[in-house]
């Protein structure tokens, strides 16, 4: 699952703006004809963003987030040299994480 995460940051007044793109099917599964229920879903359940090791954002997701999730948020007071790490886990045990150093 390597390289599933792309992170870009832009400096804005007072901090940074983070744009993250994750490659993931975010599948709701197929409808089982017998039971009418959706089976075999495959989606990211948890996204964690840490700044210098401290969790600053946690996303708990359903399969209602679109395929190849996009996430944008803003962090106050982030400085050049800070380490920003984004990781995800999905409902089938898959995971990935990516760390960047702010320029």
């Amino acid at each position: 699952m390597a390289d599933s995460i792309k992170v870009k940051t832009v400096q804005v007044a007072g901090g940074i703006e983070v744009r993250a793109l994750i490659s993931h099917p975010m599948s709701i599964g197929e409808r089982d004809k017998a039971s009418g229920k959706f089976v075999n879903a495959h989606y990211i359940e948890e996204v964690v963003v840490a700044l210098n090791g401290k969790t600053i954002l946690q996303g708990d997701w359903s399969s209602g987030i679109a395929r190849n999730p996009y996430l944008m948020f803003k962090v106050r007071g982030a400085m050049p040299g800070d380490k920003l790490r984004l990781g995800w886990k999905d409902n089938k045990g898959g995971s990935d994480s990516h760390e960047i150093t702010l320029a």
Partner: peptide, 19 residues
């Protein structure tokens, strides 16, 4: 769809794409 828990450093802003 999603629950975002934010630390004080994160502004009250999120953007994403949903179904």
């Amino acid at each position: 769809i999603a629950v975002f828990s934010l630390a004080p450093e994160v502004e009250g802003f999120v953007a994403t794409r949903v179904k």
